[in-house]
Structures are given as structure tokens and as C-alpha cells.
């Protein structure tokens, strides 16, 4: 995936569409947006950094997982098999991008009022006592659709494609505009690239 920070307007569309797609419980954000200000008055600008699982080629979360719950899928996507996860949370400590969440207990957005029908429908997917994270919307990919955050970005800041294909749009964007990754020094070979603002 390539995220063009020049196009990102910090609308939280990716975060919301991800929530809507996966119905993740409170406190779990597969995709999220970091905002911060840079510079000093009067030369101040707001910076946006959308973050998600980087689906690293050398993912430390896969190495430390004792049960092989964290694993590589076809196409290099890193996913979690929730039936294997024991909830040791070692993967959360190993991820340099802190994009994994532990779903400790079943909970709802409206507390004592109980789950909304939407939450109830979506919550069946999510087991408690296990770690959760972005899987690039694997079920959507299987249907030939784009990940929800990519499909719903109003400024088309996100591009999804095959990084192994040198002629793909993502490869060309990275080559032409000098794509960079977060924390390359961690040696994890992340597969989410950013284009400078």
C-alpha cells in the first residue's frame, strides 16, 4: 500500500470506514490517523499520518508468536488466526508500529445500553482474549474489492497494489516520488509506503 501524505486531508475517513467494515470494539483501531502540528507561529502546519499494520516482509510479530497464530498469507499479508492465538501479547511488544490490539473483554460502544444490532452482527467475528489487527481486508480482496480504507478515501490518498510487480501503480509511485517507510531502522521491511507531503 502507498499513502500519499500530500493528498491526505486528515478526515478520518480511513479510520471510520475500517471501523464500519470490521465492526471492531471500542479501543481497537486497525487503521488510525495521527495528527500533530509542526513549526512555530506564524509558520505552523498540521501534519497527518494515517497508520495501519505494515504487513512487514520480515515481521517480528510472526517470529515471536509462540503458536504460529500470526502468519504470512498468500501475497505477503500478515494475518492472525484467532483460533490459535493464546493472548500472550508478545506480538504487540514486537511490533515497532504498535498497530496490534488486545481484545480483553466483550464490550460495546454504548456500555450498559448493550450492543446495537450492527455491533451484534459484526461482533461474531471478534473473539475475546486474543490480539487483533488489520489484515488488509482479506475477505474483500478475495471478492476482488479494495481494502475499505483505500476504497473510501475521498482524496484517493491510498493506493493498493502488488509491490512485487515493478510496473504496478504502487511500485511506480514509490519509484517516481521516493516512497519511504516508517522506522526502516527496525529492519522489518514494511510494505506500507508513504509519499512525502
Amino acid at each position: 500500500m502507498v499513502i500519499d501524505l500530500k493528498r491526505c486531508i486528515g478526515c478520518y475517513g480511513c479510520q471510520l470506514s475500517c471501523k464500519a467494515e470490521h465492526g471492531t470494539p471500542p479501543g481497537v483501531f486497525f487503521a488510525r490517523l495521527l495528527k500533530h502540528e509542526e513549526g512555530k507561529y506564524p509558520s505552523v502546519r498540521q501534519m497527518f499520518l494515517p497508520v495501519l499494520c505494515n504487513h512487514c516482509t520480515d515481521a517480528p510479530c510472526v517470529d515471536v508468536c509462540p503458536t504460529e497464530a500470526s502468519h504470512y498469507c498468500e501475497g505477503g499479508i500478515v494475518d492472525i488466526d484467532h483460533d490459535k492465538c493464546v493472548g500472550c501479547r508478545a506480538c504487540m511488544m514486537a511490533c515497532p508500529y504498535n498497530n496490534r490490539y488486545f481484545n480483553a473483554e466483550r464490550n460495546w460502544y454504548f456500555g450498559d445500553a448493550g450492543p446495537t444490532p450492527y455491533e451484534l452482527a459484526r461482533s461474531a467475528r471478534h473473539d475475546t482474549g486474543v490480539v487483533m489487527k488489520c489484515n488488509f481486508c482479506t475477505p474483500r480482496l478475495a471478492e476482488g474489492k479494495l481494502p475499505a480504507c483505500v476504497a473510501n478515501c475521498p482524496t484517493t490518498a491510498r493506493t493498493f497494489g502488488d509491490l512485487d510487480d515493478p510496473n504496478s501503480t504502487v511500485s511506480r509511485l514509490i519509484k517516481d516520488r521516493g516512497g519511504f517507510t516508517l522506522h526502516p531502522e527496525a529492519g522489518t521491511s514494511p510494505n506500507v509506503y508513504y509519499l512525502a507531503p
Binding site: 509462540p66 503458536t67 492465538c85 500472550c88
Partner: peptide, 25 residues
């Protein structure tokens, strides 16, 4: 008691090759 799914603890034997938690188990 710390684990989220303690009944699955026996599965921790699987990844002895790279996981220190598995080795510890």
C-alpha cells in the same frame, strides 16, 4: 492466568524455532 486463552497453552509448543515464549514453555 495471564494468557487471554489459557486452555490453548499447549499450542505454544509449535513455534520453538523462533519464539522465545515457545522455548520458555
Amino acid at each position: 492466568a495471564f494468557l487471554g486463552k489459557p486452555m490453548r497453552a499447549f499450542k505454544m509448543i509449535r513455534h520453538f524455532r523462533t519464539s522465545w515464549i515457545s522455548r520458555g514453555f
